[in-house]
Design a protein around this nucleic acid. Structure first.
Length: 575
RNA sequence: UGGGAAAUCGUCUAACGGUAGGACAACAGACUCUGACUCUGUUUAUCUAGGUUCGAAUCCUAGUUUCCCAGCCA
């Protein structure tokens, strides 16, 4: 396993884990993914998921899924269900499913302990007053006038807070640390606030709720987390994280977590180590929960699972694969440098996965008719095509062929540019799996638009015959018009038309940069086998790209495909 | 003007005082019944200035730039 892995292949967190195991500091490691259920997971969360679950798997440890549900006014069960679904879809299994709210009683007892120990006090300052007392980035704060209340008074007040005797916002419980610290998180941070709000998990049992800095670290400790991984902005919070863990000291105070034992929740408190890594930002998109929520609530997109959204549900509906996303984050690595990753890297990873796993199909999304004149109009064949060019295990399928075909409008040029390898007047091209066809006639309408092509098939060049060896420069795809199944094809492009939608320095916001062409819907034709796909089946439409049968809207009667990503196209690039 | 962190090819990321390496992208070519895939080759980087050292991306000093922090959000 793991401890044999050469150091050079491990990122800095992997190295820490390896060293902790090697030194005997830990026998097994435990990580966790701790989302707040106040929105859908996005592709950035997937980095944390891959890291936490991946590390646990690599070093034979475990990873919990824990909902950080300490702020009931923002959270919702819809989100917890979506998060569970997304984590599972990404391919991970949690050892235990927990909620911070499972620990509310422990947090409460621990707060009582901090009060008794003289390191927490009840403050009557209003939110505005507290801000004034806090000082600024460059000036120290001042002690609250309530800071020196007696232990007895604090105990009484806090118990009455818990009993619901006081109004929302009228009091807080604060850690007594240092109002002059350069680290603002240490200037007597609030650890409990009064909020008489119904909680999605605990109902109306609690009128007070713990703050993140207090609840998160203790949750980690209660679950025996050894390595608590989070993003860079929490670096400043680490001293507070350690302060809470050390002052509550769950390890030596089992009475505090007896409620969990009574409830049958396996509990073995640890001294977790917080380690920070940088977020994975991606260009041409936004990745803040607030902005994603706005896009959804203002109907700027069609929902959390809109295929243009960077949410896990969105990229899934778009057709990205879990394996592609995992490959992406593995390829990106883990470090502490702020970075912005090119969206093309993600797309490349998805292509790489799909190339291996997607069966090939024929489809035409911008149809132009081609009639083969040297075949009887009633001619009909059933051709056998391999489903994958490099993997025989995909088997074969039957593709109907007749003299009247749909081909891609792009595959014909009346005045071909230099280097054009497709159909042109008097030119020859190979029809995929059929043979070499020659364009004899171009039929146009009154506006000079090409409406139909007529040509002859070289019968000696039919696929499988010796004459098929004859070289022609291009091969194009087609669908038999008589057998073609009409399909709606949704072509997606980036949601934003600027590289950094978060940049509002010019006075414009991300909402001003929505790409009006981010979705184009066209009617095309697909071969019969493609139409019979199940929702979420992915396939390659040859020469066009990877497509997925829409998870919600696709039916065999009304096929609907989303374009996942195009194929690389060195011809288009050359143009 | 406080505290915390980070600066390496276009992008992401290695190096842990001893040859600046990899991946992706780009470019050139080969192959091709997908202008895909695959294969081959090429280009490109240590924030700056000093210092220590036989030797510095790495250690020291000074500076520069970028990011984070003043919620009873997480």
């Amino acid at each position: 396993m793991s401890t044999e892995t050469p150091a050079s292949q491990l990122h800095f967190i992997g190295q820490i884990v390896r060293d902790d195991l090697a030194s005997g500091k830990h026998r097994v490691i435990h990580t966790r993914f701790p989302p707040e259920p106040n929105g859908y997971l996005h592709i950035g969360h997937a980095k944390s998921i891959c890291l936490n679950f991946g590390l646990a798997a690599e070093f034979a440890g475990t990873c919990n899924l824990r909902f950080d549900d300490t702020n009931p006014s923002k959270e919702d069960v819809e989100f917890v269900e979506a998060i569970k679904r997304d984590v599972t879809w990404l391919g991970f299994q949690w050892a235990e499913l927990r909620h911070a709210s499972d620990y509310f009683e422990v947090f409460y007892r621990s707060a009582l302990k901090l009060i008794r120990d003289g390191v927490a006090y009840v403050d009557d300052l209003s939110a505005e007053e507290m801000r004034e007392y806090r000082g600024t980035l460059t000036e120290p704060g001042r002690n609250s006038p309530y800071r020196d209340r007696s232990v007895e008074e604090n105990l009484d007040l806090f118990q009455r807070m818990r009993a619901g005797e006081f109004a929302d916002g009228s009091k807080t419980l604060r850690a007594k640390i240092d109002m002059s610290s350069g680290n603002i998180n240490l200037r007597d941070p609030a650890i409990y606030r009064i909020r008489k709000v119904h909680h999605q998990n605990t109902g109306d049992a609690w009128p007070i709720y713990p703050m993140y800095d207090y609840a998160h670290c203790l949750s980690d400790a209660l679950e025996g987390i050894t390595h608590s991984l989070c993003t860079l902005e929490f670096e400043d919070h680490r001293p507070l994280y350690d302060w809470c863990v050390d002052h509550v000291d769950l390890i030596n105070h089992p009475d505090l977590w007896q409620p969990l034992v009574d409830a049958g929740l396996p509990t073995a408190p640890s001294k977790p180590r917080q380690i920070e890594f940088s977020r994975g930002n991606i260009n041409y998109t936004v990745m803040s929960k607030r902005k994603l929520l706005t896009l959804v609530s203002e109907n700027l997109v069609d929902g959390w699972d809109d295929p243009r959204m960077p949410t896990v549900a969105g990229v899934r509906r778009r057709g990205f694969t879990a394996a592609g996303i995992r490959l992406f984050w593995e390829r990106i690595g883990v470090s502490k440098q702020n970075s912005i990753i090119d969206m093309g890297v993600l797309e490349g990873c998805v292509r790489e996965d799909l190339d291996a796993v997607a069966p090939r199909r024929l489809a035409v999304i911008d149809p132009l008719k081609l009639v083969i004149t040297n075949l009887d109009a009633a001619h009909h064949e059933e051709l056998t095509f391999p489903n994958h060019p490099k993997d025989e295990s995909f088997g074969t399928r039957v593709v109907p062929f007749s003299p009247e075909l749909w081909i891609e409008r792009d595959d014909f040029a009346e005045v071909p540019p230099k280097g054009f390898h497709r159909l042109k007047p008097e030119g020859e091209v190979r029809l995929r799996g059929v043979g070499i066809v020659r364009c004899d006639e171009v039929i146009k309408d009154a506006e000079d638009n090409v409406t139909e092509l007529r040509g002859t098939l070289d019968l000696d060049s039919r696929t499988g015959m010796p004459g098929s060896e004859r070289k022609v420069k291009g091969t194009i795809h087609w669908v038999s018009a008589r057998h073609a199944v009409p399909a709606e094809v949704r072509l997606y492009d980036r949601l934003f038309d600027v590289i950094d939608p978060d940049d509002d320095s010019d006075g414009k916001t991300y909402k001003d940069h929505l790409n009006p062409n981010s979705r184009r819907v066209v009617q095309g034709y697909v071969e019969p086998v493609a139409a019979s796909a199940q929702p979420e089946d992915r396939m390659q439409f040859e020469r066009l790209g990877y497509f997925v049968a829409d998870i919600a809207d696709h039916t065999a009667d009304r096929p609907i495909f989303n374009r996942v990503v195009t194929l690389r196209d060195s011809w288009a690039k050359q143009q």
